[in-house]
Structures are given as structure tokens and as C-alpha cells.
Amino acid sequence: MHQQLELLLQIQDLRMQRRGLTDGTLTDLETDVFDIKVEDAIRSLDEKVEELAGELTRRIRERYCRIADKAPRVVAPVINGICYGCFVAVSTARASEADRNLRVESCEYCGCFLYHVA
């Protein structure tokens, strides 16, 4: 897997975790069962996202920032040839390549970075 794609995956996972705490879906469980301090957790997640984003190359970071400002999802999984960011099929050639996660590529329709799921 491309190192920059790995960073993007980590950033996306952290953003999902943050979203779960801010949109209310996970908040009750995390506070009631696990005694999480939501504000502290969000601050910590934001710091980690910032730190990881700082490790992106300038070109990828710029693309990341453009997407991140507009949408909750910056990386979309590709499952069975479908981009789960926009549910449009990615090109067959792209989807079938064995080394498909060895480079960083984006969906030509929704702009999300693509992660091909095995």
C-alpha cells in the first residue's frame, strides 16, 4: 500500500470517529458506557488528524484539503469496482489491477481518494 494512501486511510478513520462523536450517533454510548469526555476526545482527534495531514506531500495535502472542506469523506472504498463515495463504477482497468493500492488515485466523479478493498 502506498504510504500516502495509508496516511489518508488513517485520517479518514479518525474523521469518522470524530463524526460519530459530533453527530450524536456514538456520543451517548461513549459517554455513558466508556466515560469519554467528548470535547477532549474531539480535540485529541483533531490534533491527530492535523499531525497526520502534515505528513502528506504538498500535492496530496492540497487535494485532501479541498475535499475535506466540502465533504465528510476524503477516502472512499472501492468494492467490486464501485466507488462508495458516489456509487459510480470506476474504470475496469483501474479496478482490476493487482497493485491498485500502490498509488494514490482519485475518483473521477466525486474526487474522493480511492482505497480498493480486497
Binding site: Q17, L45, K48
Partner: peptide, 8 residues
């Protein structure tokens, strides 16, 4: 990272 936010 989740554990770092608070133990599960």
C-alpha cells in the same frame, strides 16, 4: 487511538 481517548 481510540484507547488513547479513554479506556474501553
Amino acid at each position: 487511538r481510540r484507547e488513547n481517548l479513554g479506556s474501553t
